Amino acid sequence: MLNRTLVPQSVAREIQSMIQDGTLQLGEKIPSQREFSQKFGISRASLREALLTLETLGLLKTEAGRGTFVSGGPSSVSNHMAPWRYSGSYSVFDVFQTRIMLEGQIASLSAGRLMASQLEQMEDATRQMEECWAKGDLLANVEADLDFHAIIASACSNTMLRALYQTVRDQITETQRQPIPITDPARMTASIAEHRRIIAALRSNDPTAARAEMEMHIRNTAHCAGLEP
């Protein structure tokens, strides 16, 4: 039995595979939530979470009164981003602005505290981002990105900042998914290079450089989403 927190991601991966292999075609309406939840043997709540993830990544699009449709293949880049799902509480601008301050400070306080094995994990996550983007596995690309940032947060010397990072993790995750549909290959190449500069700063135990590289990385991601925090 899958851990409940992993069910939506597992189902999202299965649906992404159906899009990749042509089982679900571009423009095709996907089965109803009742039918899909029965097919995967999951609750509708878990299915809805999986569908929201795929919509944020640009693979699905929901049209009011019509249903949910396949809106693009994994290698497609469009000018459309999904609606911001946390608009009732925080704007996407606010979340990016908070990320710059929070993750910049976390990176600074993590310099000199990351073990060699953690730095290697970050390098592995960066390679996975690159490889998964190349083969159109958007879910795995973002998962590797999330792992990269989480490893840094785990090494932060300030326990309250670590707790705060976990408290806003869902919103942070969404800002890492949301720009994907409008991310072109050049921006992904630049993002991967930024990850490697962050690793280099952390490996050099340079808190000033670690903060600067992290803040620039998040600003550039925000720029990709059309924001100037």
Rank of each mutant, 00 (worst) to 15 (best):
I106F: 00
E14C: 13
V77R: 10
M1F: 12
L60Y: 09
L52M: 08
R66W: 07
S89A: 12
M101A: 15
M18Y: 13
G41M: 11
R44L: 11
Q9G: 05
P31E: 11
R48W: 03
N79Q: 11
F40L: 04
R44V: 11
L59Q: 03
S76L: 15
K29E: 15
L52S: 10
V92R: 01
R113L: 04
G67R: 04
A12D: 08
M1S: 15
I19C: 05
A82F: 01
S89Y: 12
S32D: 12
A82D: 01
R4F: 07
F40P: 02
S75C: 08
F40T: 02
L52Y: 03
R113P: 02
G27R: 06
Q97Y: 13
A12S: 12
A12P: 05
L24Q: 01
I15W: 01
R34C: 06
T68L: 08
Y90L: 12
R99P: 05
T53V: 08
G22K: 09
S89R: 15
L109A: 01
Y90K: 10
Q9E: 14
T56D: 06
Q38V: 13
G65W: 06
G58D: 04
G112N: 08
G22H: 07
S89L: 14
G67V: 10
A12I: 06
T56E: 06
S89H: 12
A50S: 14
S71W: 03
M1V: 14
R13F: 12
T23L: 08
G112M: 10
T5R: 14
M81Q: 15
R13N: 10
N79E: 12
K39P: 00
T98D: 08
G88H: 04
E28Y: 03
Q105P: 04
R4L: 13
T68G: 06
E28S: 11
S17P: 01
I106L: 07
A64H: 13
S37T: 09
V11L: 13
T62S: 13
Q16D: 07
I15S: 05
M1H: 15
A45C: 06
L57C: 05
S10T: 13
L114P: 02
L24H: 00
A107L: 00
E35P: 04
P31F: 08
Q105M: 14
S110I: 08
R13G: 14
P74C: 08
G88A: 03
G22L: 06
T5V: 15
L51V: 01
V7I: 15
E55T: 04
K39D: 00
G67I: 08
Q105Y: 07
L52Q: 10
R66E: 13
H80Q: 13
G58E: 00
S46I: 03
M115F: 14
F40Y: 15
Q9K: 07
W84G: 00
G112D: 09
R44F: 07
I42C: 13
L114C: 02
R99C: 06
Q105V: 14
Y86N: 04
E49Y: 07
Y86A: 04
L57E: 04
H80S: 11
P8D: 09
L47K: 00
A12W: 05
P83E: 00
I30D: 10
M1C: 12
G73V: 00
L54Y: 03
R34K: 15
S78P: 06
